[in-house]
Design a protein around this nucleic acid. Structure first.
Length: 1049
RNA sequence: GGGUGAUUAGCUCAGUGGUAGAGCGCUUCGUUCACAUCGAAGAUGUCAGCAGUUCGAAUCUGUUAUCACCCA
């Protein structure tokens, strides 16, 4: 049955994929040669909520190309797929779904909610898997992993590597090595999701904002002389002031100020450093006083040069406060509203006053319990509170006032003349509020303004684990390409901050740490020293507030039994009866308080120490998603399992291909964590690529509406065309733009290949076995074998260097411009030959060449090549061509066919330029020709005549008048078409060609006459230049002769 | 403000020391049987500017301009 006219991608591609899967082509090690070296590649796990977008499509295509290439080469290949549980994103999706049913997350228990997430995952998660199959990705689906695999609630924990166990083991390991700690730190707080997020998940955006200027009055009405001088020390301005001027973009945080800071060199404020000033907001009778301190942070040239310090709500202030021992007062609750808890303002303010006057100090927990929000502002949203604070200060006259013409106010209000109804008020002052763009942090998922918030969080002490990750890249043990990625990598890691890994979510790996009350540190004294506690002593435990506020005793372990025995050991050291208490797990600290109290009360009655319990509770937080994905290499390969065969075979992995946008998020963290845990690199090479943009170069975004769905393109043009486009766009430095026209072009390319097979079919070449190298007698056949070898070398070299675009370019040019444009055309006369041996040889050659085209193209266009493939095994696991140019090139045939092609092109060019009718068969005159040319003509006369439309070849001793001249290497030909073509046009053509030649010759001569060139240029270059000069000189002479002859007319 | 990268044909981009390339688009011509999702021919560039290094620079160095991204 003859072939269809073209390949029906939409219908055939899915079927071909099924066939691969059924044949087990993608299972780890498929097609591997005995003793093969390993090639492993990790899929950067897409979010379980995700759908295939253009970025995935690009990224996955590149990985598939490498994977298929190595698999065909016979390597032991694993492409490890899987999904990321994506904490916030997934919780958000499921919360949204629940809210459609009118259910809030908090209506459910944590356990029930997590069960809903698993339910959602089973029905709606991981859609991207099917999409990857449509794309042709050859991942080993039998090993599909999930970063929450095996976690509590997982309905099918056996479906993949137990990732949860690995994550918990790593946490415990790193905790025990001292790489992880817990502490109260300022973190980015997302008030929408009510969780900490990392600074990488914060987008800083410039938005219109305001800068308010306020007066902080000096305590007790003190005054000083405020003097401003220019650079030369001349006094510009001088006045007596009883305040210090402060500028802020966030007035609501003034309530939590702990100090005012000025630069130590700032002479303007030197007289008042060390004095106290008043925060100009809050009830008059409880105005707080704060000290004026010096710190390097304030910029004397910015604003007034004085900065208010709110350690609990600003990252810069936090550092200043830490350096200066300034108390940090948290003002907001977890939703970003002003706090509404704790003692009334008057009490809180009194405590803060005492601290400011050095009359008392506060522990961390105590400071956190002080709510300095005035009673009337409590519970307000932070932005409402801002307005209220501004209003109150302004009303009290403590805003800095300026004339309405002050340029800092921006466009001055147009003063209306009294006769126009306006009032003359130029002498009236107005509050100084500058309108200016300010940088504001937004949550990349929630899109709400991020609040720096002082909370208890877990951190990875990155300083302790960053060293090996840096050394590995510095030493070249791990290579990042393109090289610019290494610079970025160093820059970030050399300035790395502690990594906050706790998240206040329900969906994620729960931190394996349990807390109990620290009974050793607080709460009891054994008055009698008899090793036993009486009722009074036990009572003290309950009455002290250390149980509700004090420090806790944490224990970290992979399972509760271990934790239990650790706490048990702790209790053993305690006096009777506490040393008899049983460790029990409760929900929370509050529960524990009740349980503890009840247990002690019961004991007081029963005096039975075996009934005493010691409650412990687990940390409610989960780990940052990037903590678990940081373990992707070892977690997917079974680290810590009994079966270590995959770790041994495939770790460290070979290549990581990922977007440069997650160099920090993921790549750097994998580096740090694999070294920290197994002290090995996670991969040899990291290939970073850019963001995929639309055809105009704009970032794809839902709000612009320019998002391209790669599957639409796949449906329209076939996965092969889409993939080939991805390969062709994958340059080292380039930005990637998705241009549909280009994809269409590659669809056309696949059709071209298809039709080459139709041609082969019609000429009986598809019945041949394409595998073995044919014996060739004809130069055309010998020549194309050499070209095939060159193509293999080019594709191999390109892929080995991760130059996907060069590989695509090489195979495209070979298939279209060499095989289709020339070899198929050159073979036509051979197929119609009477010489049966020649026909057979040509069939075998064509079969061989097309076979190689399929193999070389397969990694990039797997579907159509597999469809056309007729080998015994599927192409996906068939052998990659091994014969290169050095095996296949025949120099004599090469020279002969190159000459033939050049002649055909020259004749066509002359015909085309001078408008010789395309269909007209013309006579060709051979004016002069060297022996090589004569031999080449003789061997290929039929071919040349057919492709150049030549009726006859006649030898002639000189150019007839008005003929068109064709100069080739070693000879001159002519087309005697005096009557048909315009002589003037031929004159013009010759003049133009000669002009170009002369220019070229000028350059060549210039170089060769320069002794320095001859001395310092490499010999090859000199030889090439000389050869080129000779050739061009020759051609010039021939054309000059022709021009002279033409001039005779 | 700091870092990184880019600036080449009308458009989108390759090209890391040896006389500038591709795809698309454009112009002219062409459907005899592999292919009109095609074929043949053609036009198009101060390689952002300036200054260096070199026998030789799109390529290396410095500098300016513009743009993009990342980080403050």
């Amino acid at each position: 049955m003859p072939m269809e006219k073209s390949f029906d991608a939409a219908a055939r591609e899915p079927a071909l994929y099924d066939a691969w899967e059924k044949a087990g082509c993608f299972v780890a090690g498929a097609g591997a040669k005995p003793g093969a070296s390993a090639f492993s590649i990790l899929l950067p796990p897409p979010n379980v909520t995700g759908f295939l977008h253009a970025g995935h499509g690009f990224n996955h295509t590149l990985m598939d190309i490498l994977t298929r290439w190595h698999r065909m080469k016979g390597d032991d290949v694993l492409w490890q797929p899987g999904l990321d549980h994506a904490g916030i994103a997934t919780q958000l999706v499921v919360e949204r779904q629940l809210s459609e049913q009118g259910i809030k997350r908090t209506d459910l228990s944590r356990e029930d909610f997590v069960a809903k997430v698993w339910e959602w995952k089973a029905t709606s998660g991981g859609k991207i898997v099917e999409q990857d199959k449509r794309l042709g990705c050859s991942m080993d689906w039998t090993r599909e992993a999930f970063t929450m695999q095996g976690a509590p609630g997982d309905p099918s924990p056996e479906d993949g590597p137990n990732f949860h166990d690995a994550v918990i083991r790593v946490f415990v390991d790193m905790y025990e090595k001292g790489f992880i700690y817990r502490g109260k730190r300022l973190v980015n707080w997302d008030p929408h999701f009510e969780t900490a997020i990392s600074d990488l998940e914060v987008e800083n955006k410039e938005v219109p904002g305001h800068m308010w200027h306020f007066k902080y009055p000096l305590a007790g009405g003190a005054t000083y002389t405020y003097v401003e001088k220019d650079e030369d020390g001349n006094v510009l301005f001088e006045e007596e002031r009883d305040y210090i001027s402060i500028a802020t973009t966030r007035p609501e945080t003034m309530l939590g100020d702990g100090a005012v800071a000025v630069h130590p060199s700032d002479e303007r404020y030197a007289p008042i450093v060390g004095k106290l000033c008043e925060i100009p907001v809050g009830p008059k009778e409880h105005r707080r006083l704060i000290p004026i301190i010096t710190d390097e942070y304030p910029d004397p040239d910015f604003g007034s040069g004085a900065v208010k310090i709110t350690g609990a709500h600003d990252f810069n202030d936090y550092e200043v406060a830490r350096r200066g021992g300034i108390p940090m007062y948290r003002l907001m609750d977890m939703k970003g509203a002003m706090r509404d808890d704790g003692a009334p303002y008057a009490e809180a303010a009194a405590i803060a006053m005492a601290v400011a006057k050095d009359e008392r100090t506060l522990g961390e927990a105590e400071a956190d319990s002080v709510n300095l929000v005035p009673d009337d502002l409590r519970g307000l949203d932070r932005f409402e509170a801002r307005n209220a604070v501004v209003e109150q200060i302004t009303e009290e006259g403590l805003a800095v006032m300026v004339p309405p013409t002050d340029p800092r106010l921006g466009e001055p209000a147009k003063a209306l003349a009294p006769e126009e109804g306006g009032e003359r008020r130029l002498d009236q002052l107005t509050p100084l509020v500058e309108s200016k763009p300010i940088m504001q942090p937004f949550g990349d998922r929630s899109k709400v303004v991020i609040e720096p918030m002082l909370t208890d969080q877990w951190f990875v002490d990155t300083d302790k684990i960053v060293g090996p990750a840096l050394d590995a890249v510095r030493s070249g043990e791990v290579k990042i390409i393109p090289e610019s990625g290494e610079k970025t990598y160093f820059h970030w890691l050399e300035n790395i901050e502690p990594w906050c890994i706790s998240r206040q979510l329900w969906w994620g790996h729960r931190i394996p740490v349990w807390y109990g009350f620290d009974l050793h540190a607080n709460g009891f004294r054994d008055d009698e020293g008899d090793g036993a506690l009486d009722e009074v002593e036990l009572g003290r435990i309950l009455s002290s507030d250390s149980l509700s506020n004090g420090e806790l005793k944490p224990h970290c372990a992979a399972d509760f039994d271990t934790v239990k025995s650790r706490f048990g050991d702790l209790l053993d050291d305690l006096p009777t009866p506490l040393n008899h208490a049983r460790v029990v797990e409760v929900e929370s600290r509050d529960n524990a308080l009740h349980v503890m109290a009840k247990s002690l009360a019961d004991y007081a009655v029963s005096q039975d120490p075996t009934q005493l319990v010691y409650p412990v509770w687990r940390d409610p937080d989960v780990l940052d998603t990037w903590f678990s994905s940081g373990l992707w290499p070892i977690g997917t390969l079974g680290w810590g399992d009994d079966d270590q065969s995959f770790m041994e075979r495939y770790f460290p992995t070979s290549v990581l291909i990922t977007g440069s946008d997650i160099l920090f998020f993921w790549v750097a963290r994998m580096m740090m964590m694999q070294y920290a845990v197994v002290d090995q690199k996670p991969f040899d090479t990291v290939y970073l690529h850019g963001l995929v943009r639309d055809a105009k170069g704009q970032k794809m975004s839902k709000s612009i509406g320019n998002v391209v769905d790669p599957l639409d393109l796949v449906e329209k043009y076939g996965a092969d065309a889409y993939r080939f486009n991805n390969a062709a766009m994958a340059t080292m430095t380039g930005t990637i733009r998705l241009d549909e026209k280009r994809i269409e072009g590659y669809r056309n390319f696949s059709t071209k290949l298809w039709n080459a097979f139709r041609f082969a079919e019609m000429n009986g070449a598809l019945e041949m076995q394409g595998g073995a190298r044919p014996e060739t007698s004809h130069a055309v056949n010998a020549w194309i074998l050499g070209e095939t070898g060159r193509a293999r070398d080019a594709v191999d070299a390109a892929l080995a260097g991760f130059k996907f675009n060069e590989a695509a370019d090489a195979i495209y040019k070979f298939v279209w411009n060499v095989v289709c444009d020339w070899y198929l055309e050159l073979s036509k006369p051979l197929f119609s030959s009477d010489d049966a041996a020649l026909v057979a040889e040509t069939r075998a050659t064509l079969a061989f060449v097309l076979d190689r085209c399929l193999a070389l193209l397969h990694p990039m266009m797997p579907f159509i090549t597999e469809e056309l493939w007729a080998g015994e095994r599927m192409l996906a696991i068939s052998e990659w061509p091994t014969e290169g140019a050095s095996d296949l090139v025949d120099p004599a045939a090469d020279a002969e066919i190159s000459w033939v092609i050049a002649l055909i092109e020259a004749i066509r060019s002359v015909r085309g330029e001078l408008n010789v009718p395309a269909g007209l068969k013309v006579e060709l005159l051979q004016i002069e020709l060297d022996d090589a040319g004569r031999a080449a003509w003789a061997a290929n006369a039929e071919i040349i005549q057919r492709l150049a439309r030549i009726e006859t070849l006649t030898e002639a001793s000189e150019l007839p008048k008005g003929a068109l001249t064709i100069a080739v290497k070693g000879g001159t030909f002519a087309l005697p078409l005096a009557g048909i073509v315009d002589v003037e046009a031929e004159k013009a053509r010759l003049a133009k060609t000669l002009g170009k030649l002369e220019k070229d010759l000028g350059g060549l001569n210039g170089r060769l006459k320069n002794p320095k060139f001859l001395d310092s240029a490499p010999d090859e270059v000199v030889a090439e230049t000389k050869a080129l000069l000779a050739e061009k000189t020759d051609e010039k002479q021939r054309l000059e002769t022709a021009a002279a002859r033409l001039a005779e007319l």
